[in-house]
Design a protein around this nucleic acid. Structure first.
Lengths: 104, 104
DNA sequence: TTGACATGAAACTATATGGTTTCCTATAAA
DNA sequence: TTTATAGGAAACCATATAGTTTCATGTCAA
């Protein structure tokens, strides 16, 4: 299942950090690496995992490869989350009811 | 940071499955184990990780320990997601604009 | 108070993960 | 047509993770 690739991708703090970084625009691998205390191959692996999750896309430009965020892939997470909304809402509703009953 | 514990917790498919299971009500460890092809201690470890992420709470009842979903903890994920909404929206807006320009 | 049951905890194993170093390839620029 | 730069790929390492088996503890019920 591809859903798992998204959850896997966002599970790592470095990768979430890369996503934030890419939110301000395309970046090359070297560019991204400069922001971390980590070697280039390590960052490259994180980028691959982000690509596998569909969260990042790559575009070649000369000898650079520019990585850009693909936020649509987060819909998978958003959809998963929304299932639990009802239970959260339910809890709020129960609380509200309790407060109102307390009022009478 | 505690945010990481939430992302870690939801990264595993078994744990997400347990969360879905718990959405229909409290369950004991044995109860939950029965739904998986996995030993009891393995499930117990997953439940511990869910607890560490604040996604599950435990209540003792006699010799059982009932686990219940704590969906509020998902707000961490929801908040993180919402940051990326703007880029998603931006893209939609750009698309919309492109379509409109194409129309003229 | 003994037996059965629900769970906790420890010790162990295999594999996944995040990182490194080293070397190779492709493109830009001198 | 060299040389420098950007990145890919392979081999390797340490630790984390997901699972197991085995044993100990607490509570209910007869």
């Amino acid at each position: 299942m591809t859903q798992q690739l998204v959850f896997r991708a966002i599970a790592d703090p470095t990768r979430r950090s890369i996503m934030t970084m890419l939110s301000s625009g395309e970046r090359s691998l070297n560019d991204i690496t400069a922001e971390f205390e980590m070697t280039r191959p390590a960052v490259a692996k994180h980028l691959n995992i982000l690509r596998e999750g569909g969260l990042v896309r790559v575009r070649k430009q000369g000898r650079e490869r520019l990585h850009r965020l693909q936020p649509e892939a987060l819909k998978t997470v958003s959809d998963w989350l929304s299932f639990f909304d009802q239970f959260w809402d339910e809890k709020l509703a129960n609380l509200k009811q309790a407060v109102e009953m307390d009022d009478e």
